[in-house]
Amino acid sequence: MCETHDHQHFESAGKYPAFEECVTFHGHSCPGLATGYRAALAAMQALSVARPYDEELVTVAETNACGVDAIQLVTGCTAGKGNLIIHDYGKHVFTFYAREKNRAVRILIKNRDVQGREEMDALRKKVFSGIATEPEQKRFYELMAEATEALLTIPQDDMLTVTEVAFNPPEKARIFTTVICPDCGEPVADAKMQTVNGKAVCATCARKN
């Protein structure tokens, strides 16, 4: 949680970063990034919120895949601010909590099927194992681009399920006091210390004991 009481918003409701900005942030364009982008936009629009300055909006992601980067950029929910929480269940599901409105929505990516997916999945194995030929690599990235564009343009109802859920957000991020680990001498958040043989040490030193 940031030490600030300034609740100014970076963006007005209805104005959000373009997908190209997400690509720059993430490092490449891909179908996963596109699904996260669509989920983020759907949530912001359903909740009628702007990109927040602090923790006015909280995201709980059930995957740690590429789409999470688009969600960070669009929603302003980040690990550093403590308003992005990841439970990696391997599911493309995201729940968004708008604290100032006492509302929450759950976004399920119900359909990621696009033309050429079967061929793309087969080529992916070759490309990432390093055995793909140059034409196979070219074809794979062509299919990736086509799939990404399709996911950016498919009607929302065909791709996502948006459900209003009970407002039960995670606790706000805490500001911890820094203490010194007596074993390694390194600074550590006090709440992260662990007691081993009656002595409080950092998690790294605790694993060594």
Rank of each mutant, 00 (worst) to 15 (best):
F25H: 14
H26N: 06
H26P: 09
G27W: 01
P31Y: 10
L33I: 03
A34L: 03
A34Q: 08
A39H: 03
A39F: 00
A40Y: 09
A46C: 09
V49M: 02
V49I: 07
Y53K: 10
E55N: 04
E56C: 08
V58C: 11
T59H: 00
V60A: 04
A61P: 02
N64E: 07
N64L: 10
V68E: 00
V68T: 03
D69G: 03
I71H: 01
I71C: 05
T75W: 07
T75Q: 07
G76R: 02
C77A: 06
T78E: 09
T78D: 02
G80T: 08
G80N: 15
G80E: 08
G82Y: 02
N83T: 06
L84S: 08
H87N: 13
D88L: 11
D88M: 06
Y89P: 04
G90A: 01
G90L: 09
V93T: 02
F94Y: 15
Y97Q: 02
Y97F: 00
R99L: 12
N102W: 12
V105A: 02
I107A: 08
I107D: 05
N111Q: 12
N111G: 01
R112F: 10
R112I: 03
V114K: 13
E118H: 14
E118I: 14
D121L: 07
D121F: 05
D121Y: 01
L123G: 00
L123I: 10
L123E: 08
R124M: 15
K125A: 08
K125H: 10
F128I: 06
F128C: 00
S129A: 15
I131D: 14
T133G: 10
P135I: 12
P135F: 05
F140Y: 07
F140H: 03
E142V: 07
L143E: 00
M144P: 00
A145P: 11
E146F: 08
T148E: 15
T148H: 13
A150C: 12
L152S: 14
L152E: 12
D157A: 07
